[in-house]
Each structure stands twice: as C-alpha cells, then as structure tokens.
Amino acid sequence: MNPMKLSLGPLLYYWPRQSVLDFYADIADSTIDIVHLGETVCSRRHELRLDDWLEVAAMLADAGKEAVLSTQSLIESESDLKTLRRLCTQARFRVEANDMGAVRLLAEAGRHDWIAGPTLNIFNPHTLDLMVQSGATRWVVPPEMSGAQLDELRCGLPSTLEAEVFAYGRLPLAHSARCFTARHYNLQKDACEFRCLGISDGLSLSTREGEPFLTLNGVQTQSARVHNLLADLPALANSAEVLRISPQGNHTREIVELFRATLDGRQTPKAAFAASLPLMPDAPCNGFWHGKPGVDQLVSA
C-alpha cells in the first residue's frame, strides 16, 4: 500500500477542558500524522478558546504532528466572523476551511496551503479546480460521496492535491441554527446551561422501535452508526492520500493504531475491522463509500 497519512478530525463533541487536554496529550504520543483542532460545531462552547487551541496546536507540532485549525461550519454572528478572521490570518498553522467565507478570507490572506473542508460541497472537478486555484492543497471529500464518484472526479486533476476520506466515526450529517440537545432538555439555546458538556459521544436518538438512528450533538446531527472503512482499506489506498478518524468518546487512540497497523501491513483489514467492533459506540456502516444509503453496512469484496 502507498504511504497513506492518518488524520484526526476536529473533536465534534463538547468535553470538559481537562479531558480535551488529556486527550491531545495522548494523541501527541500516537502514530497519527495530522491533527485538526478547534471548535467547528457551536460557538457557545468555550472550554477551550482560540488561544488554548493554538497552544494545543503548538504542543502537537512540537511532537512532530501536522496541526491544522478547522473553522466553524455554520457562521451566524459577527463574533463568529471575528474568530474566523483570527484563524485565517494567523500564519503558523494550516487552516481547514468549512465555509466559503473562510475560503474568501484565506485567499485574501494569500494562503496557498489550506484544506478544503467536508462542508464546502465540492462534488465535481470544476468546483474542486476553483478551490485549488484559490490555494487549496488538500480536500476533505464530502462523506456522502462514494469511492466510485471520487475516482471519477479525480481523473485529470493535479496529482499534487491530496484527498482525505472520512474513514472512521459517527458521520456528521447536518447542521442547524437549532440546538437539539437544548431542545431535549426543554431549554432555549441562549440559555442552554451547556447541557452537551460531557456527553462524550452525543445523545442517542432511536426510532419508536428502539433502533438507534441518529445522534444529537448540539446543533449538529450525526449518524448513530459508526462509519468504519477499516475493512475497505485495500481499495481506499488507490483513491485517497489521507484517512480521517473522527474522535469518539472512547478508544480513539486504539482505533488510530488499528488503522496504522493495517497500513503498515501488520494486520489484515478484515482482522482490524473485527478488532475495532468492540471499540465502537454503535454498529458499523459504510454505505456511503459504496454508493448506497449511508446507514448500510456492506461486506467488502
């Protein structure tokens, strides 16, 4: 297999400050290559402020990791824009742009090393090429895009562009102005009492038949199932340069090492997938990668 890189996606949940710091201290010792940092879901979350994230980024950079700052997916207020401008004008770390406002600011700042995030809705080579011309050098594929669509899209594009595929974690499916966690507790978002703090994997939502379906994570809605492409690794190696692991409440480091062992050929994809099952908060799925409903789990050929 080619030397694929492993990346850690931004932490999507709201954990207590010390838990976050401990988590990244552990990650600094892991075999991960790239770490995305920053609050991408809700501007009300403040256990770590931008300056704290910059410190974590510096610590990870010192440990030899590529630290990337990810921008908030849904920009609403002037204060959101203020944070966004600070992120886009700092020069030390690369930035993952999750909104076209960020793309504008990065281009304005003359950056030619940024990452086009998964919420930019890049579905065709023409749009991707526009982003490359604006300075993107890596692209996080929208999770709903299949492997076949990705291969088709990349035909004829510059080989210097890296593609990053969402390979592990509950799928971020939607963002809203409404906070579904606050709604669950009959609170308004403005007075949410930060009830999502410490719900380490989000709130599980099931159908009336008790089947886990979605996960409520504040203003973000995720899948209940865990998107897991470990068993699909052989095929993935031809399509992407970077694999994204999205942090879950537990065992993220072990998942990272399972991916690493598989990439190094120390473990078969099948065995690694089997070993990952007890480490996941819910059942696996990989339908999106195979061009099926995301919730489906297909046995890889």
Partner: peptide, 21 residues
Amino acid sequence: CVMVEGRCALSAYATGESPNC
C-alpha cells in the same frame, strides 16, 4: 428546513438520495 440548506445529508444517510445530489 430545520437544517442549514445544502448541509444536510440525513436523507442520503437513510435512503441514498439527497437534496444536494
């Protein structure tokens, strides 16, 4: 739409068909 339009893959997750694509 409760979700930000253009940023919702709930239907894709359940059915394989989404507003986006």
